[in-house]
Design a protein around this nucleic acid. Structure first.
Length: 1076
RNA sequence: GCCGGGAUGGUGAAAUUGGUAGACACGCAAGACUUAAAAUCUUGUGAGGGCAACCUCGUGCGGGUUCAAGUCCCGCUCCUGGCACCA
């Protein structure tokens, strides 16, 4: 019998498809379209391994299925061909990266064609091709020429912005711009020089030049991305990496933060990927507050000695914060608690014979009540004192150190028996000496004393403000200190001379601390007191300002208001340095917080923000974690940036000068002065002699828009013709790994939104639906060498020897059994190796690892195809399990799919091996088997459950084999169903059956439910939920009859015994359950 | 630490809406064909008990809801991916 000749047949059909352009997408705008896209591959020198095609096979199945269903299918492939490996290879060998890249691509295409993908190869693109990167440069120019308008929430042309500037300056405009953008009026603008204007505009452009902190690798002379840096060293080469400020092109992606976030809701993407993007964008809603700084509060050069200052002369309130304290005491007085009011009524107007003041500032605290003459403070405590004992003790200690005695009463005592409390107070007053008796100055402190107003100098000090961002304003009363990042700009200004040395030392260490150290010492608390104090904007208390490197300069404002009771890191810091902790949240409610007390967290946040805005302390603010994306690379093998410099100001080239092609250079290394490789090109200047930009674009530039280029890949006038883009819109199905979640998938959304804003696209998202594929891991095999000998022992005997496990090439191992002959030939030293076998076999050990050359576990699809054929590989990769699951590659089961194809082939042939089909009317059972398969496969493809389709094919073929079915109608329909998965064999059988043309044009068989209709159903019958028997009934059997039959069934009766039947559960076409 | 995903026979896995757990394969065992091997075909194959009919147990662990749980709820364990001093 004629065996299926897969090698010849597969080559034949691959040639047929190419010759007939079977899979070229037409620009027939009348047809419904379907655009399915694979992740853009980087053509590496290692070629494809079996893990790569997993997603490609899945999308190929969808593409072929959709084509058979009558869609105009766009299924292209191309190459993300700029990139580091080729450049690295060029540095090592001097070979031009264009040559290496082109060779690698040739190999990739060959491998891809071997698998029989239905790509429209006419549309292939390569990002390193000038005809492609011309448009990458063009898009860069549009980004440079645009700014982001927050008012209309879209990008606009820069000319609109300059018009605004001419009319109104930059004050009325809501635009995305650099933090340090100065305010200017229209008149200012008109008086700016051209250069000044350009500098200002750079602060608004979406593609802009600015100083950025980057990972600089001096050894490689280049900047590395975060994921190229591992523990402070370059991933490649392991050179040390330092943080360095450099002029870099950046993309103002932060302007799109909110839209990138909101847009996720309408995308059909895997939830984990969306979640990753949400986390990356990191939106937090909160408030920005200003904390006034008490400058040099402890600085002896400005102040009397701390001792003197704390001495309770005529002045008890801390001078520098007097204004603020005064404000707060007044505020507090307006709104006393019930108990405070009872007490005040009892002591006011010298009722006790002593003058009392309430809510009076002492040092940096406000005492509830104070008798200044007798130096007695009365504090009333509520329940919160129990929680805040520590904090209150600190306060008491401070007051004691100022010479005050502190008496505490419970609120409950006041209410219950005020006269008893008064007795105690009077007793205390009588026994303590008066102020005059103590001999300190006799002046009496009053609110009106003009000498207490802060001096102009001090007032200036108060202008220093520390801005903080918080998502939890509700915990404001729990703020007991502040921490600034060591790099914070105010650190120098506020540090007192006493603390100067310690602070400078700390800043120096923190700055030199590599990322690596910071990572490994996460749990170590470190910090230094600046000596400065800030004023709590709500309570008016003085709190210490510290610096600590757990506060990140790059996030928020680089400063935090520390709430140790509610934040772990703040707590660790407070505990380490003995700073106070004040409880403010209990059981989801705010406590101990003045007017916020008693409110649930959410309401407290709202109320606190309201208060903050009303008092002008701060404002509600939305913060994003995402940073602008650095766009420059100090590399050779990337798109040149179409910019030249005049007096240090960047200007765009003219559009007709595009593409700006990569120059030839003598070496692909940075210059001796650390300039990027492009500086080596002597011609790297404009015609007028201006210097061209020397950095190139990053890998993600080309991949951020390539999906649109496939719609119109050869257009020299536009990046895509509008009518073509309008038809193809965006990608209907993108299959790829989730590892691109926060890179490629975010940047391409950003560019698409931008191009949409500017009217170049009619969609604002590039990928409507995406599904993730799991990675295929390697499965390594091990052999065990007896120590010191050239003898290898089989796995299950190895414990009897001292052995060493060695990776062995998985390609010479079959079902974990080593092919000894091949092993002897694998390496010369193996030729005379000896083996200790078990049951005549050498059994290898196995382990799941990354697929890599060094582990000898790389499986090349070409080898699998050589042995089994492309159809088998395609089926097997799908059969392996759900697409999105991570799984090791293991050829153990591949025989099953291979056998299946042979079985399929045999269906079309008689015993003699001749092709033979019958034209008789189709058998009912065969029709049912076929239509069950049609229904299931349709469902599976639409739900991306490819593994179950393969099972379905097997079941169908098994059934048809059993039925000895060789019916033409049935079998040719079956071919149309299997064709998307195993196209070569199906084309061949389709042709042998007398059809012409490609089966991909033969349509999809229509599912007919009539054929799978049953008229009876076999019920599983259970007693108390336990399956006991099966009984078959026709569909129209009434429930009563079934119940009767079931209860009469002796097998069932046996289980019912004599127990009464409590309930009879009957679910039509599902189950029968008798409850006894 | 935070946020995802997962755990089912010797192996890959299936079970779509809570309704017969293990489909379909691999592997293994026995058998047929053959001088033999390969290929192919047939039968068996979750564990335990039993000559058998059949019974008991069984979807990571411990509880719960339900006539019925791999599937739903609560609490854990382990593996895995991402993020991480993010205020």
């Amino acid at each position: 019998m004629a065996e299926y000749q897969f090698r010849a047949t597969e080559k034949k059909w691959q040639a047929f498809w190419e010759k007939n352009q079977t899979f070229s997408a037409s620009d027939d705008f009348e047809k419904p379209k379907y655009y399915t896209l694979d992740m853009f591959p980087y053509p590496s020198g290692a070629g494809l391994h079996v893990g790569h095609p997993l997603g490609y096979i899945a999308s190929d199945i969808v593409a072929r299925f959709k084509k058979q269903q009558g869609f105009n299918v766009l299924h292209p492939m191309g190459f993300d061909s700029f990139g580091l490996p080729a450049e690295q290879y060029a540095i090592q060998t001097g070979q031009h990266p264009a040559i290496t890249t082109s060779e690698n691509i040739t190999r990739y295409i060959e491998q891809l064609k071997n698998i029989g993908f239905a790509y429209d190869w006419k549309r292939e693109v390569r990002t390193s091709d000038p005809s492609f990167y011309k448009w990458t440069q063009w898009i860069f120019m549009q980004l440079f020429n645009s700014w982001y308008d927050y008012h209309d929430n879209k990008a606009r042309s820069i000319s609109v912005l300059t018009e605004h500037f001419e009319k109104t300056g930059n004050q009325l405009i809501k635009a995305a711009c650099d933090e340090d953008t100065p305010d200017f009026t229209a008149t200012d603008w008109l008086h700016f020089t051209e250069e000044e204007k350009q500098k200002i505009l750079l602060k608004y452009r979406i593609a802009y030049l600015s100083e950025a902190v980057v990972n600089w690798c001096p050894a490689m002379g280049t900047v590395l991305s975060n994921d190229e840096v591992k523990d402070g060293f370059s991933e490649r080469g392991g050179h040390p990496v330092e943080r360095k400020k450099m002029m870099q092109w950046s993309m103002r992606i932060t302007a799109y933060a909110n839209r990138l976030l909101e847009g996720l809701n309408k995308l059909d993407w895997p939830e984990p990927v969306k979640e990753m993007q949400r986390n990356w964008i990191g939106k937090s809603v909160g408030a920005e507050l200003d904390f006034e700084v008490v400058k040099n509060s402890f600085d002896p050069s400005l102040d009397p000695s701390p001792k003197e200052r704390e001495m309770p002369g005529y002045m008890t309130g801390d001078q520098e914060i007097w204004e603020a304290l005064k404000r707060f005491s007044r505020e507090n007085r307006k709104d006393p608690t019930e108990e405070e009011d009872i007490f005040w009524q009892a002591v006011r107007n010298k009722k006790t014979g002593y003058k009392f003041r309430r809510q009076h500032p002492i040092g940096n605290y406000i005492a509830d009540f104070v008798c200044l003459d007798r130096k007695l403070v009365i504090e009333l405590d509520g329940e919160e004192h129990k929680i805040n004992k520590e904090y209150d003790q600190l306060r008491t200690d401070y007051l004691n150190s100022c010479g005050f005695k502190v008496l505490r009463f419970w609120n409950a005592e006041i209410k219950k028996n005020i006269s008893h409390v008064l007795d105690k107070v009077i007793e205390e007053l009588r026994t303590s000496p008066s102020l005059s008796e103590r001999g300190a100055g006799g002046e009496v402190f009053t609110d009106k004393n003009p000498s207490l107003d802060p001096s102009p100098k001090e007032r200036k000090a108060n202008d220093l403000k520390i801005k903080v961002f918080t998502t939890r304003v509700d915990t404001i009363y729990g703020v007991t200190f502040m921490v600034l990042a060591p790099e914070h700009e105010l650190v120098k200004e506020i540090t007192t001379s006493e603390q100067k040395e310690a602070v400078e030392e700390y800043v120096k260490i923190a700055k030199n601390r590599s990322e690596r150290e910071r990572m490994t010492e996460v749990k170590r608390v470190s910090g230094v007191f600046t000596g400065a104090y800030a004023i709590h904007p709500f309570s008016g208390e003085k709190i210490q300002v510290w610096i600590g490197d757990y506060v990140l300069a790059g996030y928020g404002t680089g400063a935090v208001m520390a709430v140790p009771s509610d934040d772990e890191r703040d707590l660790a810091f407070a505990e380490h340095f003995g700073l106070p902790v004040k409880q403010v949240v209990e059981d989801g409610k705010i406590i101990n917080s003045d007017f916020l007390s008693g409110l649930p967290i959410k309401e407290a946040i709202a109320k606190a923000i309201e208060y903050v805005e009303e008092k002008g302390i701060g404002k509600a603010k939305v913060n994003f974690r995402m940073r602008d994306a650095i766009f420059s690379r100090q590399r050779y093998w990337g798109e040149p940036v179409p910019v030249y410099y005049k007096n240090g100001i960047p200007y765009l080239l003219n559009e007709d000068q595009l593409p700006l092609e990569l120059p030839e250079v003598d070496k692909y290394l940075p210059t001796e002065d650390g300039e990027p490789p492009l500086a080596r090109a002597k011609t790297w200047k404009t015609e007028e002699g201006y210097e061209l930009e020397k950095s190139t674009m990053p890998g993600w530039a080309g991949s951020s828009w390539y999906m649109f280029r496939y719609m119109d890949p050869h257009n020299n006038e536009e990046f895509v013709a509008p009518e073509k883009q309008e038809y193809w819109k965006n990608v209907d199905l993108y299959i790829g790994g989730s590892e691109h979640a926060t890179g490629h998938l975010l940047y391409s959304r950003f560019w698409t939104m931008f191009l949409y804003d500017m009217g170049y696209l009619n969609v604002d998202e590039p990928f409507q639906k995406m599904i993730n594929q799991g990675m295929i891991q390697g499965r390594s095999n091990f052999i065990y060498r007896v120590e010191g000998k050239n003898t290898y022992v089989s796995k299950n005997l190895k414990d009897q020897y001292t052995t060493q496990a060695i990776h062995v090439d998985v390609n010479i191992v079959y079902n974990d059994e080593l092919d000894i002959e091949k092993f002897r030939r694998w390496r010369s030293e193996n030729a005379d190796a000896e083996f200790i076998l078990e049951d005549g076999k050498y059994v290898c050990g196995a382990e799941v690892e990354k697929m890599s050359k060094s582990k000898h576990n790389v499986v090349n699809p070409d080898d699998v195809i050589e042995q089994y054929g492309a159809d088998t590989l395609r089926l097997y990769e799908m059969f392996l399990g759900p697409l999105e699951q991570f799984k090791p590659w293991n050829t153990n089961g591949i025989d099953g799919t291979s056998k299946f194809l042979k079985k399929l082939w045999r269906l079309f042939h008689n015993e003699k091996g001749d092709f033979s089909l019958s034209d008789e009317k189709a058998d009912k059972k065969a029709l049912k088997a076929l239509h069950l398969a049609i229904q299931k496969v349709e469902y599976d493809i639409e739900h991306f459950s490819f593994n179950t389709s393969v099972s379905t094919f097997m079941i169908c073929v098994n059934t048809l084999t059993e039925l000895k079915c060789n019916n033409r109608e049935i079998l040719t329909d079956l071919m149309r169903v299997i064709a998307p998965y195993a196209p070569h064999i199906c084309e061949e059988l389709w042709q042998l059956a007398g059809n012409s043309g490609s089966i991909s044009d033969a349509g999809w068989p229509k599912f007919n439910p009539e054929f799978i209709k049953e008229n009876e159903f076999t019920y599983p019958v259970s007693v108390n939920g336990k399956h006991r028997d099966n009984m078959t009934f026709s569909f129209d059997t009434p429930k009563e009859e079934i119940e009767k039959a079931v209860l009469e069934n002796p097998k069932i009766q046996k289980w019912i015994e004599d127990k009464p039947v409590k309930k009879f559960i009957f679910v039509p076409n599902k189950i029968v359950n008798v409850v006894v």
